[in-house]
Simulated assay, not measured.
Amino acid sequence: MSHHYSGPDFGFPHGDARLDLTDLYAFPKPSEAHKSILIMNVHPSAVVNPRGPTTREPFAPAASYEFKIDTNGDAVADIAYRVRFSSSEVGAQTAILRRVEGAEAAGTGDGGQVIIEAAPVSTGRDARVTEAGGYRFFAGWRSDPFFFDTRGALDDLQFTGDDFFIDKDVCSIVLEMPNSALGPKRVGLWARTLHGAGGVWVQADRGALPAQAVFLVGSEREAYLAGEPANDARFIAVFAHALEHAGGYAPEEARRVAGTLLPDMLTYDPTRPASFPSNGRTLTDDAADAFLAVLTNGKVTGDKVGPHIDLLAEFPYLGPPHNISVPSHATSPIATELCKASRRPGSS
């Protein structure tokens, strides 16, 4: 299911839904090609595994949400955009956006040049947008744009076109920026969440390409989510083994294909049209179909589900949320099945 529910047994990283990274998107701004849109979605509204709590508070005040940008091809961040949020205990949440470069971008912390501050977080249908210095910023609940027949995946890839995400919400961070702020024209992107409640920043989740976590279980998944793209070569053997099992690849071919999935970065050239997996990712790109084709070695190429129709033509592009008041435990009727399938490659 893209990168949703990346914690143990389809729970949440560190047991906190607000730290769960679901998807990353990057595409040129429609009608203004000199600008780009980056979208990080976190905090799924529906709990698949009841052991992972969720909350009405959109973002974790003790967390940092980061867009990471590699400008020279070494899979190490040269630019980072960091977003922190206030607590909702004293009212509505607000956000502060900072930019860091160089060695600081590759590290952890909450310093950096302030780009936007006191940006209101949206909890209703209306999108509250903040603008400053050539940037536009949105954070809050939105309709989840990801589309996939999860039940069909659990039924031995017998798809019927039943979109599990059609009425689900996520918390979105949407950033519009001039292309010049990205660095050179071709960059590598990923997103991550960090938790700092204990006084030390600990990476909870990270990713760029959809569905990578399904190749990993147990300690391997934990190591992957806590790792960095620059070190992803160590997971090629694990990915290759899963591809041999799920797609019937020969060992050598499985390793080759695994190498195309790592490092876990989204390649993006803002001077070219976006289309996953070759360049960035738009909100209508069928990433699930692309993943299925790789996973099954071309035996299954689609799940009969298409893009959602509630997308907007203007910033922040994501449709309004379906459920304004998100329950503490929005359980799913297929939760038990998903938990049982959590150790089966290709089950999400």
Rank of each mutant, 00 (worst) to 15 (best):
D9Q: 14
D9M: 12
P13F: 00
H14E: 15
A17T: 09
L21S: 03
D23A: 12
A26N: 08
K29Y: 10
P30A: 13
S31R: 15
S31C: 12
H34C: 14
S36H: 09
G52V: 09
T55R: 14
P58R: 02
A62R: 09
A62D: 13
S64E: 15
K68L: 14
D74M: 05
D74R: 08
V76L: 11
Y81Q: 05
R82M: 02
E89L: 12
T94N: 14
D110K: 07
A127Y: 01
G134W: 08
R136Q: 11
F146R: 05
F148R: 11
L157F: 14
D163K: 09
F164C: 06
I166S: 15
D169G: 06
S172G: 11
P178Q: 11
A181T: 06
P184C: 07
W190H: 03
L194D: 09
G196H: 07
R206S: 04
G207H: 00
F215C: 02
V217S: 15
E220F: 15
E220D: 15
R221W: 02
P229A: 06
A230L: 08
I236N: 11
V238S: 10
A242R: 05
A246N: 07
G248K: 13
E252F: 11
R255V: 12
V257D: 08
L262S: 04
P263G: 06
M265C: 07
T267L: 06
P270L: 02
P273S: 02
S275C: 12
T284R: 01
T284F: 09
D285T: 04
D286H: 09
K299Q: 10
D303Y: 01
V305G: 07
V305C: 11
E314D: 15
P316Y: 04
V326M: 11
A330L: 14
A335I: 04
P345F: 01
S347E: 06
